[in-house]
Nucleic acid binder design. Structure first.
Lengths: 145, 145
DNA sequence: GTAACACCTGAACCTGACTTTATGTCAAGG
DNA sequence: CCTTGACATAAAGTCAGGTTCAGGTGTTAC
């Protein structure tokens, strides 16, 4: 059993956030002793799942839905699986987009490195868009694909 | 020369967003004819850069700073490069985190697939945390690394 | 027994990036 | 001439995800 302050420290979260999660129904089984929240292993596990779902882009209300499904038992396995599948696909697409953005950023770093050496962008502008050094061309093309 | 409506269509952005960007100073050279915004090639190029910087996680006010540097000339090449370097590093770290999250999601998909087959989580709970099938164990470990 | 401290509540406030609303100007078409 | 449609403005509203605050309670330490 942990107090809210101990859990906050364990998870490096502000106490206010834990209270907010509770208010939003993310700890449906949370118990209290004379008003004071008592966090058990069940809530810690919930918190681990919450962190994962949050990172994967879910909103609080969707996480609440997931918690509700968990309470409901095995009949909701398909819902829970569908939710994770959907998130997985969304994240995979986001990852692809990020790779493109990253190539763009790498290109821009090279661009300004070169501009600094030249003192201007004249030579660079003459090279664009298809007379760049080979590996830079790849970055540029990836970023615009 | 384009009207705000044409640009909105070209970039699949609401008109209100373009006006908001203008209000925030993202088009420092934008001209007007009797009050009406006239978007030229310069603003389209700015918009392409804005989209990239936004995807890379920059806030509007930082993008505004970048636009100001571009106006200022070659003396700000180092600032612009530093900005892209910082974004590049941040995005690379974020990408790593996302890979971990993705492994967690893949694990959860397998978990609920298995739970559905079993009709309960008893066997799964007995396998956790270190008696999982080999490739699933890898996902699990990566996600918690 | 009283001070210090962690806890409680509910409500108001905050930030970023828009979006909506209310109101107004202006040129072209029926 | 008047309506329609695209443009303009300022100001307020929205949304997620918290944070802060005022005012009160409970337990522990001396």
């Amino acid at each position: 059993m942990y107090t809210i302050g101990q859990v906050a420290e364990l998870f490096h979260l502000p106490i206010s956030t834990l209270r907010y999660y509770d208010k939003e129904g993310l700890f449906p089984c949370l118990e209290r002793q004379s008003g004071i929240r008592k966090f058990s292993e069940r809530e810690l596990e919930a918190l681990r799942v919450i962190e994962c779902l949050k990172r994967s882009g879910l909103e609080i209300k969707d996480i609440k839905q997931f918690m509700a499904w968990c309470l409901e038992g095995p009949s909701t396995y398909p819902d829970r699986k569908a939710m994770f599948e959907a998130r997985k696909q969304a994240l995979e697409e986001e990852l692809q987009q990020m790779q493109k953005t990253l190539d763009m950023l790498r290109f821009k770093c090279w661009y300004y490195e070169t501009a600094m050496q030249d003192g201007n962008e004249d030579r660079l502008n003459a090279m664009l868009p298809d007379h760049l050094p080979p590996e830079i061309q790849t970055l540029y093309d990836n970023a615009h694909a």
